[in-house]
């Protein structure tokens, strides 16, 4: 188990050492976004703008026009909403090379409650032209995708978790922006998931397997640009899809998958995630359960699609 914010702290330090143009722009939460070691070792590449996220976005845009690769580091709630218009106007519209690196995505800042939880973040970011969105699910894929984001020329929104999540991959696994990863192969039902709920989706696959149902599990780590080929294949080859995410079911991965299905005119999609309600304080998995997201419920939903029972 390791938190994705730790993956950010480790990978950004490695990137900063390799490339002096890599910058971290903090908004005074470096301690919890895990950038303090970067600040200590690479002070010339680090800037804390104070509690001023809008300015952080704009300053990063200015840095990017001068060839820097700034990573703005904050919480997902603030990185997607407090600085939303700055991202749209100063980063996405001029297509500047700024990375918005956000910890505390989804319900993971569990004890902090609704104000700090970001259940809308990548849904909002998804509607901005020129934006790329990455939602890694474990420590190793997170490090690989941060590296890919650094090499990607253009705006990227990255979403990390606060709390430790299980390892899904090995250190040597490499991830490509825009290409979903098949975690499990199967032909009875497809589960498309991203982020911290991946371990629940994997457990659901095991439950289904014990019932004789083989699920194809796709890690949709890139929410945008969506791997439409992988989604299309799941719909064409299987036709029954469950999406699972720690995000509002409105405008998240479920919505993106439905858009593809609607275009194809076929397939059944069940969306699992936050049920269009704000979060609250509590243990992370309890909050997910309140929204109907458990390994068992994912398996049940998938099985009902296969058997046709409700």
């Amino acid at each position: 188990m390791k938190a994705l914010r730790d993956a950010f702290g480790d990978e950004i330090l490695a990137l900063g050492r390799e490339n002096p143009n890599v910058y971290v722009v903090d908004c005074d939460i470096g301690k919890s976004c895990k950038t303090l070691e970067f600040a200590r070792q690479l002070p010339q590449q680090h800037l804390n703008v104070g509690i001023a996220e809008q300015n952080a976005a704009g300053v990063s845009a200015g840095l990017a026009t001068c060839g820097k690769i700034p990573f703005v580091s904050t919480y997902a709630a603030f990185g997607s909403m407090r600085m939303c218009e700055q991202i749209r106007q100063e980063i996405c519209y001029p297509r500047l090379n700024v990375k918005i690196a956000c910890s505390h995505g989804g319900l993971t800042p569990a004890n902090d409650g609704a104000s700090h939880q970001a259940i809308e973040d990548y849904g909002i970011m998804r509607t901005l032209p020129n934006m790329t969105i990455l939602v890694p699910c474990d420590y190793y894929s997170c490090r690989s995708l941060i590296r890919a984001a650094c090499q990607w020329d253009g705006p990227v929104y990255l979403r990390f978790t606060r709390d430790p999540v299980p390892f899904i991959y090995r250190e040597s696994d490499q991830f490509e922006i825009g290409r979903a990863r098949t975690v499990r192969e199967g032909g009875d039902v497809a589960i498309i998931a991203a982020g911290a709920v991946m371990s629940l989706a994997l457990q659901a696959c095991d439950l289904l397997h014990s019932q004789g149902i083989e699920a194809r599990l796709l890690d949709m780590h890139t929410v945008k640009p969506l791997d439409t080929a992988a989604v299309t294949a799941a719909i064409q080859e299987i036709g029954r899809v469950v999406t699972v995410e720690d995000h509002n079911i409105i405008n998240g991965i479920g919505s993106a998958v439905c858009e593809v299905a609607a275009g194809l005119g076929r397939g059944v999609v069940k969306r699992m995630g936050v049920q269009d309600q704000f979060g609250e304080s509590g243990p992370y998995f309890d909050l997910l359960e309140k929204n109907g997201v458990t390994a068992q419920s994912i398996a049940d939903t998938a099985r009902s699609l296969v058997t046709g029972e409700n």
Binding site: L47, A61, G62, T65, E85, Q89
Partner: peptide, 21 residues
């Protein structure tokens, strides 16, 4: 040197440029 239009945002970008310099 910088896109603008939504008011109040340009100075932040100018600060970023000056910092880079």
């Amino acid at each position: 040197d910088m896109t603008a239009g939504s008011l109040g945002q340009g100075l932040s970008a100018a600060v970023g440029m000056a910092l880079a310099n």
